[in-house]
């Protein structure tokens, strides 16, 4: 019960100047780590943004973080995605493969096996996208790194709670 574990908190916030800074400042002021963070506007008319933060802690620490984040005036709601039944989480990764790489064909074949989608190409390289939960993305990265040199970027978690949070 008291072991550290990764949790992802999903927040809906007013899309105001400084909200993200306030959230991250809270984490640093209270000594919590941010493993990854994503944020973006989701409803311009309602000035609504979403923020997802993955952090490590015991259940009690996560409960404390959640309670602290809920006190931020611009935060409308906070859900612990890791514990909420029926929530969904995804990450996006982008993989660039260099045409002159020795393992080029092997890497591209593997990406095709993984149902990666080609999103760009030029004379030097081809770029693909893949989505999955964090565990899947970690597995993809391990597998691709084993094949040869590739360039990789990942988004961090985008998630959604189990119920309509806009109350």
């Amino acid at each position: 019960m008291n072991e550290n574990q990764l949790y992802t908190l999903f927040m809906l916030s007013d899309n105001e100047r400084g909200v993200l800074a306030r959230v991250t400042a809270l984490f640093s002021a209270r000594g919590y780590q941010i493993q990854n963070i994503t944020a973006g506007e989701i409803n311009e008319a309602e000035h609504l943004s979403c923020i997802a933060i993955t952090t490590e802690g015991t259940p009690a620490t996560i409960a404390q973080i959640k309670a602290q984040v809920e006190k931020i005036v611009a935060i409308r709601s906070v859900v612990n995605l890791t514990e909420a039944q029926g929530s969904v989480q995804r990450e996006l990764m982008i993989i660039r493969v260099w045409r002159d790489a020795a393992a080029h064909d092997n890497i591209v074949n593997t990406l095709n096996e993984l149902d990666a989608r080609q999103i760009a190409a030029d004379e030097n390289s081809t770029s693909f996208e893949l989505t999955g939960d964090t565990r899947a993305i970690n597995q993809y990265i391990a597998r691709l790194n084993g094949l040869g040199p590739v360039e990789i970027a990942r988004s961090g978690i985008v998630g959604m709670g189990p119920t309509n949070l806009r109350t």
Partner: peptide, 14 residues
């Protein structure tokens, strides 16, 4: 100002 006082206010706004 909002940056400096962010951690010592309940809320701040420009």
């Amino acid at each position: 100002t909002t940056g400096i006082t962010r951690n010592c206010t309940k809320h701040n706004v420009l």
